[in-house]
Computed example of a mutant assay.
Amino acid sequence: MCQKNYVLELGKIIISRRISAELTADEISQVTTSHRDGYIKLKNGEWRQISYDPNVKFVVNYYAYPFGEHDVVVITDLDSETYRTEVCFSDETHDRTKGYFDWMLHQSRKSPFTLGNVVCTAEVKKSLGMQHIHRLIEKQLSYDWGMVGLGDWTLNDRAVENGGRVLSHHYIGDEYVYVLTEADRSSTTIMLEYEY
């Protein structure tokens, strides 16, 4: 009797900042499709398809990344209210500052995000150079919310789409910095963490 393979429901796919920078769209699609369909790579290099147990709460697979020293890890959380799959490198699985990108949003055309009048506090101007300030503006415009957790990252993505307040948190130039874009998009303020 043939055993039927269980195809994994991936839900929303979340990728880390480094995955976004270092892997191509095709490579990301390949590892997520392999994960979904149950293909794993054995130590001898052979690919094997396994059957997932539909009753598990987490599914974790590792895929060798040919141009780096760390594997790509694909984790699907089946125990949460909304299924989601996270793709990151093995050395950043526990790094809360890795940043998250919604893969579908990342692949599609993003909604325009207006920052309004960008202002910095006096402390930011004194502590950070213009290069760092410009980098923070670029991060905000590219949906990079920095060190916020996955829940806050998702809230910021939704706020851009639905017109809410967006708050990102970054470590740049040896300082912890917040970037706050108002809900009405009239202004964005860059401030040091202790000024928030």
Rank of each mutant, 00 (worst) to 15 (best):
D184K: 00
S186E: 02
D53V: 00
S127M: 14
T121K: 00
H170G: 02
N55P: 00
D53Y: 09
A64R: 13
P66T: 09
R158S: 12
F89L: 08
R96E: 13
Q49W: 08
I190Q: 02
F58T: 15
V72D: 07
G173W: 07
D102M: 06
T97G: 08
C120E: 08
G129L: 06
Q49C: 07
A25C: 10
L8H: 05
L10D: 00
W47L: 10
S16Q: 04
R48N: 09
F113Q: 03
E193C: 09
I15N: 05
R48F: 09
Y143D: 07
W145G: 03
E92I: 06
M191C: 15
F58Q: 10
Y62G: 03
V118L: 01
G45H: 12
S127A: 14
H70T: 11
N117L: 13
S186D: 01
H106T: 02
V166G: 02
W103H: 04
P112H: 05
V177H: 02
N61G: 09
C88W: 06
N117M: 15
T82Y: 11
G164C: 08
E69K: 14
D91T: 01
M130Q: 09
Y178K: 04
N5Y: 12
D26I: 06
I133P: 04
N5E: 11
S142G: 07
E175P: 03
S127Q: 13
G149C: 09
L78R: 15
M104L: 14
T33C: 10
K126T: 10
V7P: 01
K57D: 10
E81N: 13
K4F: 12
V60L: 15
S29G: 14
S168T: 00
H106S: 05
A25T: 12
V118F: 00
Y194T: 06
K41H: 07
P54M: 09
Y100M: 01
E92M: 04
E175I: 02
T33D: 13
V119R: 15
R84K: 14
S127L: 11
I133D: 03
H170V: 00
Q131N: 08
G11F: 00
G164E: 03
P112D: 07
L78W: 08
I15L: 03
H170Q: 01
N61H: 13
H134Y: 06
S20G: 11
D37T: 13
K43C: 06
F67E: 13
M147Q: 14
E123S: 14
L115V: 00
G129K: 15
V166M: 01
G11D: 05
P112M: 07
R36L: 03
G68Q: 08
T93N: 04
T33Q: 12
R135M: 10
G68K: 02
D152A: 13
T93E: 12
D157C: 13
Q30E: 14
R109C: 07
T32G: 06
M147L: 11
I14G: 01
S80A: 12
Y52G: 02
F89A: 06
I133M: 01
Y100D: 05
I40T: 10
G146W: 02
C88V: 10
S108G: 15
V179W: 00
M104C: 11
N156M: 04
I13D: 01
I137G: 02
S34T: 07
E195Q: 14
Q30T: 14
Y171K: 04
K41R: 15
I14F: 04
E161S: 11
E9P: 12
W145E: 00
Y62D: 09
I19G: 01
I75L: 12
D53F: 05
I50F: 07
V59M: 08
V73M: 05
F113I: 03
